[in-house]
Design a protein around this nucleic acid. Structure first.
Length: 215
DNA sequence: TGCCAGGCCGGGT
DNA sequence: ACCCGGCATGGC
């Protein structure tokens, strides 16, 4: 695979869609909560859940920490898997309070690979969620891989499709400058492209902005 | 109507 | 080491 294609791909997407202004959240804490709530879930539903938390003035580590889990589950209901996600939010925030006193700045002091290990040690936080938090809340350069990334790379012949997460992430890390702004925009653009042109049902489409790169 | 969405985990083979 | 079902709401 030609290394510079990964960058060309990005430039093409950027020219087509423009900047995406991610993550759609007002504070790093909101980003972290959103990262958990959006697991296998349409973002629109996550917005409703976050709205509910804001309405109750509950979008803070302290408030969620002391809220009972049933109450939390009800508030985040629109985001789906709400019992499961209430548990995940709770366990994440509990550790966040214990280890960082609910302070993002303290989290930022960790080296990013150490932080990744810390995040992965929390039940309900996997690699994509961890990397989303590191990139979009902590703002350190790490590439986020999601289902769209795999599907798009595979449909365009970059990969076979059965590669695991870290392997796909390595492709981006090897072939791009490690820049937070670039990684931020690139992942957001992939999601944008995926939503509009590369959903599961869609066959390969001729109107896709990346049609020149079809195999 | 049925299929899917910005995953992750646990159990079975 | 894979493979699969469970988790659940809302949009198209």
């Amino acid at each position: 695979m030609k290394a510079d294609l990964i960058l060309k791909f990005y430039q093409k997407l950027y020219r087509h869609f423009g900047p995406q202004h991610w993550w759609p959240g007002e504070t790093p804490f909101e980003v972290m909560v959103g990262a958990i709530l959006t697991q296998n879930t349409a973002w629109k539903n996550v917005e409703r859940a976050i709205e509910n938390l804001k309405k109750e003035n509950a979008l803070s580590p302290e408030e969620i920490n002391k809220m009972n889990i049933e109450k939390l589950a009800q508030l985040i209901k629109p985001s789906g898997f709400y019992n499961l996600k209430a548990k995940r939010l709770k366990s994440f925030i509990e550790r966040f309070m214990e280890d960082f006193h609910g302070d993002i700045q303290e989290m930022k002091k960790l080296e990013k690979h150490t932080l990744r290990e810390w995040l992965l040690s929390i039940p309900g936080i996997g690699r994509e969620t961890a990397d989303s938090i590191i990139l979009y809340a902590i703002e350190k350069p790490i590439f986020v891989v999601d289902a769209y990334t795999r599907r798009i790379l595979s449909r365009h012949g970059f990969i076979k499709g059965d590669e695991d997460y870290d392997e796909i992430q390595e492709i981006f890390h090897r072939n791009l400058p490690h820049d937070t702004g670039l990684f931020n925009e690139y992942h957001a653009l992939i999601v944008r492209l995926g939503k509009e042109y590369c959903k599961k049902q869609n066959p390969l489409c001729e109107t896709c902005p990346l049609k020149d790169y079809l195999p």
